[in-house]
Design a protein around this nucleic acid. Structure first.
Lengths: 93, 93
DNA sequence: TAATAAGGTTTATTTTATAAACCAAATTTT
DNA sequence: AAAATTTGGTTTATAAAATAAACCTTATTA
């Protein structure tokens, strides 16, 4: 049985990646609402995905307020797809 | 996004359940080889699945040697199938 | 001007997963 | 026939994760 990429085999990180696979980009607040996570947890997991090169994180300003937008990288897409293929072998799909 | 059953969202426990979904029963040694896990880790994870009522574990003897055989319960089957359904919503399947 | 909220980050705590050490019985080696 | 090794595990200790709590800065609102 092949290994399940541990970076993706985490509920919150998988949820983040799943969302980012379907949109051009998503900001911190949107991800927080969609995943129903705490800000702290989200911040940590975004860092991990970013450090791995799976997502890119842009910190900018929208008007006067900070705004963090995230998008998936092509490396992230590949990793996600590979993860799905491996997982299928576990799920009998 | 629905929660991924944390008991099943673990590589080794998922591997165990995946195997048990496809066979009548499997013994400790077989599971250890198939999953390439250490005996200690396997023992711990089997206990957790057993405590949750997802598998039944029979400790007996085969000839002179101890033999632990495991099989999935109907509750375990339901939980696995539910987990798969939730996971599909993450994977876009 | 003193609270409160928005948008986060950092640090601490709890849970988990994993590995290392151990145990008893059976088998093999010397 | 001891001594060493293997088999089939369990228990305990360690490492790694996930999560939450506390905190920070700037902007609003009362």
């Amino acid at each position: 049985m092949k290994e399940l990429n541990p970076l993706l085999h985490s509920q919150l990180r998988l949820a983040i990646m799943s969302i980012l696979m379907n949109v051009e980009e998503a900001d911190f607040v949107y991800l927080k609402e969609k995943t129903e996570s705490t800000a702290g947890n989200l911040s940590v997991q975004l860092d991990k995905l970013s450090s791995a090169g799976y997502i890119s994180v842009e910190k900018g300003m929208l008007g006067k307020r900070p705004r963090t937008t995230c998008s998936i990288t092509s490396e992230g897409q590949r990793a996600f797809e590979e993860y799905v293929e491996v997982l299928k072998t576990y799920l009998n799909l």
